[in-house]
Design a protein around this nucleic acid. Structure first.
Lengths: 133, 133, 133, 133
DNA sequence: GTGGTCTAGACCACA
DNA sequence: GTGGTCTAGACCACC
């Protein structure tokens, strides 16, 4: 798993780390049981405070995507194939998706164009998963 | 246009106001030339400070969605039919969409299910637009 | 003299009227002694309050560009050929020009490109003046 | 970078701060990566409210001239050598330049005199840049 | 430490 | 009436 973050982005660093790991799981680059780098290791790699990495891992833990053991560190807990989403997630997800789709609509992206791009991105995940599996 | 916000949400109030107005435009409930409530009026309605509304309107103005006039207040400037998006927009939009799709994937939503929900939401916009026109 | 203003612009209307008249004088479309439309007439043409036009004319009077008589209305007072500028003007003008040139510079316009555009605009004034004289 | 503002000027304070920083970048006194004072620090130095400085920095951020980072504050993002301007910029810039040139013309500055002053100012930027580099 | 959000209230500019 | 500017001070998020 190759994580890259942008220290100058508007997006908080802990959020970026969390996003990159979610994407890695979606692409199948990280599967259930895979270990994540230790917080101190990752912090050193990025030149950031390990509390920041900690916060990212905590987010992922709350989302049920990783498991954190004192002993074995953080490991992936959830796969794309692990079953249906928790209902609370769906609701918040649809809310965010609705806003994103509204933005695309008001900026002149056609319905077909939006669906085309979503499909392409999703297919990209699946293709990556097939290769890395 | 009927706006509702949640004062207890983690989402900043000004962001919520901006989101609600973007959705209203996407649904066609607000079309080009329609006036928005004055900042102080809307602030009074929500029981918030007018600076907060101001910030929301400022965001919308930067996005090119509204026009702010000393005399007549803020009016809708951009419609779903107003032409293709500005090039920088698509890039940032796809980035956010990719993360959202990755989340759906790791939480077990199938590709078909995701596309189905997006299509439904987009159709909802179009249907609303047809009715209100 | 054909004036056009944009009621939805960020620039105050009275400022736009003043700017258009300054440009008309620079182009030689309005020369010394030429009458300006009456404030009420111009206000009616634009569909604005005549106080707004009044403010624009007052600005021009303060700048020494027009003369306002109760009887004969406003008439052009100053031409491009009317002599050197008042020293206070030069100072404020250079200040504004310096900022404008700084903006061009930081946005990557080369010195030659800037001079080229300024020269073109100034030549445009002279060419117009020659024709209308 | 030594900034000076005039609290009694008609020009809004936030605009003055923005202008001074643009000029500093044009002169090469501030180059890419240079840090700006923190909003609260600068506000204290000027004896003004930090919100006012905030607004100035926000303007600069929108113009793409600085980058604002939670950790390290605001840093210069764009240099005179950073490439051609974004297309919308040139248009708005020429509009403002046309008005300024018209003013010079009606107040009796000759075309040569205007070009001479512009050239001098631009050369001043370049000379300063050469020294500070 | 940094910036971001929100409140409350003053005064001014524009139309 | 509208929005724009500025002040003063609170609390929170990020690092």
């Amino acid at each position: 798993m190759n994580l890259t973050i942008d220290l100058d982005s508007d997006v908080p660093i802990y959020q970026q780390i969390r996003d990159r790991i979610v994407e890695a799981i979606a692409r199948g680059e990280a599967v259930e049981g895979d270990p994540l780098p230790s917080t101190r290791q990752l912090a050193a790699d990025f030149g950031i405070n390990f509390h920041t990495v900690n916060k990212a891992y905590d987010l992922l833990r709350q989302e049920g995507l990783i498991r954190v053991n004192r002993k074995s560190g953080a490991v992936i807990r959830r796969d794309p194939g692990a079953g249906p989403p928790d209902p609370g997630f769906s609701e918040r997800w649809e809310e965010r998706m609705r806003i994103l789709l509204a933005e695309a609509t008001v900026h002149g992206l056609s319905q077909d164009e939006v669906i085309r791009r979503c499909t392409a991105t999703l297919s990209g995940f699946r293709a990556a998963a097939r290769v890395t599996t």
